[in-house]
Design a protein around this nucleic acid. Structure first.
Lengths: 334, 334
DNA sequence: GTGAAAGCGCTAACAG
DNA sequence: CTGTTAGCGCTTTCAC
């Protein structure tokens, strides 16, 4: 049998509302008779009271639950993001519902809708398709619903966003490659970015190369392991000797492709990844990476989100989190 | 503004209960006037009705939510389990709350308590500490609360459980090593298992070796990357030439330790992992593994859990999911 | 300082 | 076939 407010009220001989006020430590609770308060607290402990989330949620309209909509956590990058988010949300007293979606308009829409009907207090959106053309996003913005968009390749005016600034990391990465003597560097970009009117990683890469006087070239590659390995095989046959790829996953696939054709990394090709998940460090050779600071990414996002939840008037924030360069055995030491 | 049952009822000119019955497609709905039904359905669509989870949960006592309590999903193994669980639960129309806990009694207890107060309909427990001495688990069992325990190293009578049977995978693995000419094989077991009165992986390993006439030895190693690398360095200096380790993560750490001291894998040492996460295949050399079937593990668990939720009388199930052996470059081809 | 009462949106008997 | 009624357990406003 589970204890309710009413049980405590009866036990102590007061009204449920009094109990509610005390257990939630509302301002008014201070003005209660000290003794009444103590008796309520004691009874709660004694009866092992656990407030009912569902009842509380219905009555208050708050669920103490946030949601993270992101790509599948079978992807190490998202697994790391989700892990960090889970941990930090818990620390802040929130539950986190993870909604893993494929990179697909309709699926993302349904996911968000479902979370809304669940009345999550706010959402972290780390998805690909929910852009500002989407009626759903427009609706959310109009309703002033608390959301923070994570790592979108495009800037939004009317929504809070937190994103990695790839400039410092890429600058250091290309600088390192240049120091190794490379006059040109090749960038493998995510295929989907090819036709999007946005500023993907390769744009920052181009800029960095221009500044450093390094010749830049770009090609495209999809997410699948097979596609990345194939890209690695292609690169093995190409004149390129320095490559940066859009994610750790892609980079590892590419290296596996290079190794398959008997190339040596970094002997024949210096390779740098992006993301810098903790696992990529375990790879052999350990991956040199442009590292995203997932802890900052999430903590900034949650801070903004909670601020908005507490005060709906809060204006939008736009926070860039700097990336850095991590050395690894996949490039020469210089 | 959000649409409620009452809005629809008013719009159509019927009572809320009628609307509820129709929209939930209860048996009785079939007996309604076809026209009334259609008008309700139309109105729901027109007003873009979304039922409130919180209200439904409070009234029905069901939350359409399950929980997975497991280790941190920054561990690839748990990330894979969580990913699979997320996907399958969604397919079954359930949300999944993931509660990542450290391997620690009190933290697990608090996690489970919190989930209970959230009234999740059932739980998948993949934790280390919640054994049958725990009063909380005893309580859950007594309350006939739907839980399924995943991959415990010990068998429980009064709780449903689903676990990997490591015998077939280890048998194939050791058989392969024997075929390569190894007279003895070393097993690296998880340190925590050392003093537990349970049947950890190394026990199955011992059994397999005995059957195959291979000399078995066992040592222990903790989870941390550093500990595993150190173990690898130790093994590099040891006479062992064939090693199996308790997880993919540990195995990769061990190989990195071996490589650090200039050993070749599999040239100097044949190494086999356990778990067989999708990422370990990407490692270099790709990991030969005793593979756990996470999809089966989860689908069986969910099936049992949902059966229990639907019918509390359902007796406990005890399901073993066979493992298999996956070849990889970390062992000789034979 | 404490209690009474209304209501959050939905479900589920039971009555008509 | 459809409506009535009574909650689910908690929050919150207002009255005593």
């Amino acid at each position: 049998m589970v204890t309710t407010l009413a049980d405590i009220a009866q036990h102590v001989g007061v009204d449920v509302s009094t109990v509610s006020i005390v257990l939630n430590d509302r301002p008014k609770a201070q003005r209660l008779l000290k003794e009444t308060r103590q008796r309520i607290l004691d009874a709660a402990r004694e009866l092992n009271y656990q407030s009912s989330f569902t009842a509380r949620a219905l009555a208050s309209g708050k669920t103490s639950t946030l949601a993270l909509v992101c790509g599948g956590i079978d992807n190490p990058y998202f697994a790391q993001i989700a892990s960090t988010a889970l941990e930090q949300a818990a620390k802040l007293g929130y539950h986190l519902l993870i909604n893993a979606v494929r990179w697909e308009q309709e699926e993302e829409r349904r996911g968000v809708q479902m979370l809304l009907s669940r009345q999550v207090d706010g959402m972290l959106l780390h998805t690909g398709c929910l852009n500002d053309d989407s009626p759903l996003l427009k609706q959310l913005i109009k309703d002033n619903y608390p959301i923070v968009m994570l790592n979108l390749p495009k800037r939004y005016q009317h929504v809070s966003e937190v994103y990695s600034d790839f400039y410092p990391g890429l600058l250091a990465a290309v600088t390192h490659l240049k120091a190794l003597g490379h006059q040109q560097v090749h960038f493998v970009e995510y295929l989907r970015m090819k036709h999007q009117p946005v500023a993907p990683k390769s744009v920052t890469f181009d800029k960095v190369c221009r500044e450093l006087g390094v010749k830049a070239s770009v090609s495209y590659c999809d997410l699948s392991t097979e596609a990345c390995m194939e890209k690695g095989r292609q690169l093995a046959e190409s004149p390129h000797q320095a490559v940066i790829a859009y994610s750790d996953n892609a980079t590892i696939g590419i290296i596996n492709g290079l190794l398959e054709l008997g190339r040596d990394v970094p002997g024949d090709m210096d390779v740098i990844g992006m993301d810098g998940t903790r696992w990529s460090e375990q790879y052999n050779p350990s991956l040199a990476c442009v590292v995203q600071d997932d802890v900052q990414l999430i903590s900034q996002s949650l801070e903004i989100l909670l601020a908005k939840i507490k005060n709906p008037q809060m204006p939008c924030s736009h926070v860039a989190v700097p990336t850095s360069f991590r050395m690894g055995r996949s490039v020469g030491m210089g």
